[in-house]
Computed example of a mutant assay.
Amino acid sequence: MSASYPRPYAVDHPHQHALEGHALDARPGAVLLARSPFYPGGGGQLADRGTLTWNGIVRDVVGFEHSLDGLWHLIAGDMAPAGLIHLQIATSFRQLMCEQHTVAHLVNSAVYRLFDGALLTGVRMTDGTEFSVDFDLTKLSPEQLRAVEDAVNAAIADDRPVRAFDMNYDDAQAKDGLFRAKSVAPPRQPNGLIRIVDIDGLDQQACGGTHLASTGQARRIRILKVDNKGRQNRRFRIGLTD
Rank of each mutant, 00 (worst) to 15 (best):
G41A: 07
L24C: 06
A154Y: 06
R113G: 00
L52F: 13
V123R: 05
P187E: 06
D242K: 15
C207I: 04
D171Y: 09
Q189D: 06
A26V: 10
V162A: 03
I57G: 00
A18S: 15
R195T: 04
L84K: 12
Q100D: 00
Q88G: 09
A3W: 11
D12C: 06
L202Y: 15
L46M: 11
D200M: 14
E143F: 06
D60W: 12
L140H: 00
S214C: 12
G42R: 10
F131I: 08
S2R: 14
G216C: 13
G29Q: 13
D203P: 02
G239W: 05
L19D: 09
A34W: 07
C98E: 06
P37T: 10
V107A: 06
G50C: 11
A23L: 02
L119F: 04
G42M: 13
G83E: 02
G117R: 07
E130P: 00
T210N: 14
E130M: 12
D78V: 08
E20P: 08
S132A: 15
I57A: 05
K229Q: 04
Q95A: 15
L96C: 11
Q173N: 05
Q16K: 12
G239E: 11
M79E: 14
L212E: 09
R235Y: 05
A80Q: 05
P28A: 14
G50L: 09
S67G: 13
D171A: 15
G209A: 14
A174W: 00
G29H: 14
Q144T: 10
F131V: 07
N55A: 14
P6Y: 11
H105S: 04
P190K: 09
L84S: 09
P8N: 12
I156Q: 04
H86P: 02
A90G: 09
T102I: 08
D203N: 13
D150A: 15
V62Q: 15
S67A: 15
I221M: 03
V148N: 04
D200W: 15
Q173C: 10
G128C: 01
V148W: 05
F115E: 00
D170T: 08
L87V: 04
N168Y: 01
Y5W: 13
L19R: 10
T51F: 12
Y169G: 08
R49H: 11
R7D: 10
R94H: 06
T129C: 09
L33W: 07
A90P: 04
N168H: 11
R237H: 15
Y39P: 02
L106S: 03
I199V: 14
G56F: 11
L193A: 14
G209F: 02
L178V: 00
R237E: 08
R222F: 03
D203L: 01
V103M: 08
Q204D: 04
A26F: 03
